Computed example of a mutant assay.
Amino acid sequence: MKSPWRKQEQNETGTKELYRRKSGKKPPTQDQNAAGDTRNNRTCLFLDRPPGNPATDAVGATGENKSGLMKTQWRKLEQNEKWTKQYAGKLLSDIQKACVNDKNISNIRILLLGSVGAGKSSFLNTVASIDRGRISQITIAGGADGSLTFALKEYWPQYKLKNFRILDTMGVEDNVQGGLNLNDVLYLVKGHIPPDYKFNPATQIDERSPEFRPEPKDNEKIHCVVFVLDATVAGNDNISDARRRKIKELQTALKAINIPRIVLLTKIDVLCEFVDADIENTYKSEKVKEAVNVAKELYKLPENCVFFR
């Protein structure tokens, strides 16, 4: 090959010039990307296209909305708030102040749970990028048929999000012998399983296992579970009966021990073309709204516990 198939970070001139020609605007700096793109209602870590214009992209020349896009938002930001750089900074400040009201707990430990390919590892890379202020990859992400993560991995943010610990492990698969089972999750949440423990569906951990922690400390337990769900799966209601049964079992068991739970919908830009064109269309998208309805019914959680990536 006469030219490299992957460009280095230093060679960004072509990308920036393309952005300028398409949008008519000056491209964002690396710091702006890392801090969050203020035109969008999510944190953008890298811009590969100029911003969309909801006035022209989502609405026709006659002013009528195209099919699939609501005229009013079905979810709003905080009262009197708009998505600005100042509001993004306020949200980050609130996150940095988050803590557990227990002197024995110094960091909030969050467990990611989801099926294979839902986007757990990709989300973890996004968190690392926000924390470090640059594009980062701390775990392999990919659409494999089986789980890419087998060991329990604990990520320790060191900068902007250093008050959190995020744990990633193998996926929750449809079949009984595949992925995490209910006992695995409960042992994990209660702190009995140490970081780097390698899960094996054929040989499950129990109280007799040498790795088992019989009396975990409070700061070794999980304080919140995040269910990661592919929005294209939820939007098409393409969820198997086996997965529904596993989710119901997990929800019942976690609710019984009073563990906070939320849902993270991934790939909403793949689900909806309007969101792909401009992320500000998220709360007007009928497809995203339907995916949220499926998620809140599936996990038996209120709508305000369903978030997006």
Rank of each mutant, 00 (worst) to 15 (best):
F46T: 10
T266A: 02
P201Y: 01
L229Y: 03
I166A: 09
G235L: 05
D48G: 08
W156A: 09
I130N: 00
V225A: 03
G179W: 00
G178Y: 08
A256P: 03
F123W: 11
L91V: 15
D206I: 00
S93K: 15
E154S: 08
N219T: 02
N200S: 01
E273P: 07
S285V: 03
T38F: 15
N33D: 05
Y283W: 15
P216R: 00
A277D: 07
K198T: 09
D131S: 13
T266N: 06
L112Q: 11
K190V: 06
Q32V: 06
Q79C: 01
I140D: 13
V292K: 01
G178I: 04
G179C: 02
K7V: 07
N40C: 05
A144W: 02
E286I: 03
F212Q: 00
C272V: 02
K217A: 12
K217H: 12
N65H: 13
T29E: 06
D145A: 07
L148H: 07
G52Q: 04
Q10F: 09
K90F: 11
E211V: 01
Q79F: 12
F46R: 14
N65L: 11
S147D: 02
E64C: 04
G63L: 02
A144D: 05
H223P: 07
P195H: 06
Y187N: 03
L180Q: 02
P28H: 03
F308G: 04
R245L: 12
N125K: 14
P51A: 13
G171K: 01
T15Q: 08
R261V: 12
Q137T: 14
K82V: 14
I140R: 15
C272G: 00
G191N: 10
T84W: 01
V292N: 06
G235S: 06
K284S: 05
K217Y: 12
P216I: 04
D241L: 14
G146I: 08
D131R: 05
K7H: 02
P51L: 03
K217P: 02
W5P: 11
V100K: 08
Q73K: 14
G60E: 06
E297C: 13
D218Q: 04
K284F: 04
K103G: 04
R109A: 07
K287W: 06
P4D: 11
S93H: 12
C305M: 13
W5V: 12
T56N: 05
L124E: 07
V189G: 03
K153C: 07
D184H: 07
G178D: 09
C44H: 08
P302Q: 13
I239Q: 06
G60W: 08
C305H: 15
L111T: 00
V185T: 00
D131Q: 14
L254H: 12
E286Y: 02
T38I: 12
N104D: 07
L113M: 09
F307Q: 08
P302A: 10
E290L: 14
E17P: 01
D57P: 01
T13V: 05
Q8N: 10
L111F: 03
V127M: 11
L69R: 11
E78Y: 12
G143D: 09
L47Q: 04
T62L: 10
Y159V: 06
Q79A: 10
N80H: 09
A256W: 05
H192M: 00
L91K: 15
A88K: 11
A98S: 10
R49F: 01
E215M: 07
T232N: 06
L69I: 15
M70N: 08
A35P: 01
L265V: 10
E154N: 09
A231W: 01
E220V: 05
R39K: 14
P54K: 12
P4S: 12
